[in-house]
Design a protein around this nucleic acid. Sequence first.
DNA 1: ATAAAGATCATT
DNA 2: ATGATCTTTATG
Length: 206
Amino acid sequence: MQLPFFTDSDVVNIARSLVGNFVFSSVGGSLTGGMITETEAYCGERDLAMQKHLLRRPSSVTTLKKKGGIAYIYTVYGYHSMFNIVTNEVGYTDSVLIRAISPTVGLDIMQERRGSNIAVRNLCSGPAKLSQALGLTPALNGEPVVNNNTIWIESNAEFNAAESIISAPRIGIDYAKEDKKDDKGKPRPARDDTSLPWRFTLKQGV
DNA sequence: ATAAAGATCATT
DNA sequence: ATGATCTTTATG
């Protein structure tokens, strides 16, 4: 399927369009990669999840404000790397989190990096898992994902698109809402972005 | 110096 | 459902 332009302004559409395409890495001389099966969109202008994320991690702003098409990689829970692709033009803080891939290349390398006794279907079935399997760490933050031979996206010409992609609420962002009362204790309209359907997955068994 | 909270994972 | 694990940020 066709690759999106990472400078496009609609991060939700980019997140959807990435599903079914390939991501590869060549880190430490080892080629690894697979088909993207799950993504999530985060939008600086319309999304409490991203807005609160930025408040908690001011140092991320620099990378996220750059022109779309580079990696944004940060650590959560102490040792899990999250691999995102920055989108939109300079000055916007939009990105797509790659949450899962179906591994196709370099399975042996991935096994090594992830530790033995891991079933293949569990190699890259989560955002921290695929980052580890592909060797992506915050050291590669800011690395381009187009015209690059370290991390890159390739389109999947074979993939027949739309109807096998499902949208759903995003994972692990319970904080992406406001209290129903303002700071004086008066009720206000609740703002809640936790259920935006900005998570895209490939339908099982296709 | 201490506290609190994560865009998670593996196991029970 | 729960514990592991530790960086980042805020506060005193």
